[in-house]
Amino acid sequence: MSDLKLALFDLDGTLVDSRQLIAQSMDEAFRKNGLKGCSYDQVRQIVGIELFEAIPMLLSEDYPAEGAVKIGNDFREIFVRNRSDGTHTEGLYEGARELLHELDDAGWLLGVATGKPRRGVDHILDAHGLHGMFVTLNTSCTGVGKPNPRMVLEAMQETGVDAHRTIMIGDSSHDIQMALNAKVTAAGVAWGFHTPEELSASGAHSVHEDFECLARGLTAFGEGKAA
């Protein structure tokens, strides 16, 4: 039996705090298109889903499809502008970098499974000096996104790690559902877009209140115990 173990991380709301950047950029994109705006509580429900699948979920059923595409394109432009001019940042959560290095030192294989486009992933890796930390990077750019299990299945295939040695860590029910669909362990984190209650209701095997708690859970998982 292989000793390999794989920890897959979501990015937005899990490793990086992009909550205000995403919410305010989406609100601005809605207003730019003549809509009344979009609240944080609305936006947080769709973070993690591929953008052009997510936008229609925030709109009425009869909203024109081409209009939804325009909102998505406007959101991307506004998001990049707000990030570039320093209006909002995508800072690493306190404790995230330390945990990644601890896992790497302990022999874990690390990966990313995110609804963020690849250029957004590369920006985070560049901004925080994380290139080389992850052995597999999976985004919605290369195929169907969350909650479909594709990203997790491809990460396991790429690394050669079995499902029972793979754990997905995320802050949203979409992460949890993707993990369950891939038949791997699903660990929720309480500091992102979805509440602990929402994560538990989605079927998370565990929900962690901070990075120290998550580190203990991952240590237990690595030893073959419940995370």
Results as ranks from 00 to 15, higher is better:
residue 186 A to N: 03
residue 190 A to I: 05
residue 167 I to W: 01
residue 172 S to L: 00
residue 166 T to E: 12
residue 195 T to C: 02
residue 192 G to T: 02
residue 185 T to N: 02
residue 171 D to S: 00
residue 164 H to F: 11
residue 163 A to P: 00
residue 187 A to V: 05
residue 185 T to H: 09
residue 162 D to E: 14
residue 173 S to R: 13
residue 197 E to A: 14
residue 189 V to A: 03
residue 198 E to S: 13
residue 184 V to N: 09
residue 188 G to R: 05
residue 195 T to S: 15
residue 173 S to E: 12
residue 186 A to I: 03
residue 181 N to Y: 04
residue 179 A to F: 13
residue 176 I to M: 05
residue 198 E to R: 14
residue 185 T to A: 11
residue 166 T to F: 06
residue 197 E to Q: 15
residue 167 I to F: 04
residue 161 V to K: 03
residue 195 T to L: 00
residue 171 D to E: 02
residue 167 I to S: 07
residue 185 T to I: 12
residue 166 T to R: 09
residue 174 H to Y: 14
residue 162 D to P: 08
residue 177 Q to R: 14
residue 175 D to V: 01
residue 165 R to M: 10
residue 171 D to T: 00
residue 177 Q to D: 03
residue 183 K to F: 05
residue 170 G to M: 03
residue 189 V to I: 12
residue 172 S to V: 01
residue 180 L to H: 13
residue 170 G to V: 00
residue 161 V to S: 04
residue 166 T to P: 02
residue 193 F to S: 00
residue 172 S to N: 01
residue 175 D to S: 05
residue 162 D to T: 12
residue 186 A to E: 01
residue 169 I to R: 00
residue 174 H to E: 08
residue 176 I to T: 05
residue 188 G to N: 08
residue 169 I to L: 05
residue 185 T to V: 14
residue 198 E to P: 13
residue 191 W to T: 07
residue 187 A to R: 04
residue 176 I to A: 03
residue 176 I to E: 05
residue 187 A to L: 08
residue 189 V to Y: 07
residue 174 H to G: 04
residue 180 L to R: 15
residue 197 E to I: 04
residue 179 A to E: 09
residue 194 H to E: 07
residue 181 N to S: 15
residue 172 S to E: 02
residue 197 E to H: 13
residue 164 H to N: 14
residue 173 S to H: 12
residue 162 D to A: 14
residue 182 A to L: 07
residue 193 F to P: 03
residue 161 V to Y: 03
residue 188 G to I: 09
residue 194 H to R: 09
residue 173 S to C: 06
residue 182 A to F: 10
residue 170 G to N: 02
residue 192 G to R: 01
residue 182 A to C: 10
residue 198 E to H: 12
residue 184 V to W: 11
residue 194 H to F: 05
residue 179 A to Y: 11
residue 161 V to E: 00
residue 197 E to C: 06
residue 185 T to C: 05
residue 197 E to D: 15
residue 166 T to K: 10
residue 179 A to M: 11
residue 190 A to Y: 08
residue 162 D to C: 10
residue 168 M to T: 11
residue 185 T to M: 09
residue 176 I to L: 04
residue 171 D to I: 01
residue 189 V to S: 06
residue 161 V to R: 02
residue 183 K to A: 14
residue 181 N to V: 10
residue 188 G to M: 07
residue 172 S to K: 01
residue 183 K to S: 13
residue 198 E to Q: 15
residue 161 V to I: 12
residue 184 V to L: 11
residue 187 A to S: 10
residue 189 V to L: 06
residue 196 P to A: 08
residue 178 M to Q: 13
residue 192 G to I: 00
residue 187 A to D: 07
residue 192 G to K: 00
